[in-house]
C-alpha cells in the first residue's frame, strides 16, 4: 500500500498552499470554469494563446490539495507550449493516472502526482484543471464537470 507521504509530497503541499500563476488574466483569449460536483472543487482558468502558442495561464481555484497543486504545476509548465503540446501533456497525464502502468514519460514536474493513481476516488481532483484547460483553449462556454 502506497504511503500517504507519497501522495502528499512536500512539492504538492507547497504548490497547494502557494499556487503559482494564481489570479486572473486581464485579456485572456479563452476562459473556462471547471467544477467537481462530488467535492465542490471550483476552478476558473484563463489562457492567452497567440499564434497557436500558450503565452500565459492564470487560475483561481478553490479546492483540495491535489486539484490546486495540479493546477499550479500545470500552469507553470504550459507557458510557451503549443496547443498540440498542451493536449499531449493532458493525454500523458491521464495515462499516468489511469493507464495500465504508471508511465510518467514527458511529464516533468507533474510526475509528483503519480501517487494519485493509487487513490481512484481522487483521480478526478487531478484531472479537473486539465479538463478546464482544454475547455479554456477551446473557449467553451458553460462549466466543465468531472461527473
Amino acid at each position: 500500500m502506497i504511503d500517504l507521504r507519497d501522495l502528499y509530497q512536500e512539492v504538492i503541499l507547497d504548490h497547494s498552499r502557494n499556487p503559482r500563476n494564481a489570479g486572473r488574466l486581464t485579456e485572456p483569449s479563452g476562459t473556462a470554469k471547471g467544477h467537481n460536483p462530488l467535492c465542490g472543487d471550483l476552478i476558473t482558468l484563463d489562457v492567452l494563446v497567440e499564434d497557436g502558442v500558450i503565452r500565459d495561464v492564470s487560475f483561481d481555484a478553490r479546492g483540495c490539495a491535489i486539484s490546486v497543486a495540479t493546477a499550479s504545476i500545470m500552469s507553470d509548465m504550459l507557458k510557451d507550449k503549443t496547443l498540440e503540446e498542451a493536449h499531449d501533456l493532458f493525454r500523458r497525464f491521464q495515462k499516468m493516472l489511469t493507464g495500465p502502468d504508471a508511465e510518467a514519460e514527458g511529464l516533468d514536474k507533474l510526475e509528483v502526482l503519480a501517487g494519485v493513481r493509487e487513490f481512484p476516488m481522487r483521480v478526478k481532483c487531478a484531472t479537473l484543471p486539465f479538463h478546464t484547460l482544454r475547455a479554456a483553449l477551446d473557449n467553451e462556454p458553460g462549466t466543465v464537470q468531472t461527473e
Binding site: 500517504l4 467535492c39 472543487d41 483540495c64 490539495a65 491535489i66 487513490f119 476516488m121 481522487r122
Partner: peptide, 11 residues
C-alpha cells in the same frame, strides 16, 4: 483550517 475536506477524508 488549511486542509480541504477531501484531503482529510483520504487520510
Amino acid at each position: 483550517d488549511d486542509v480541504h475536506p477531501h484531503d482529510v477524508g483520504t487520510v
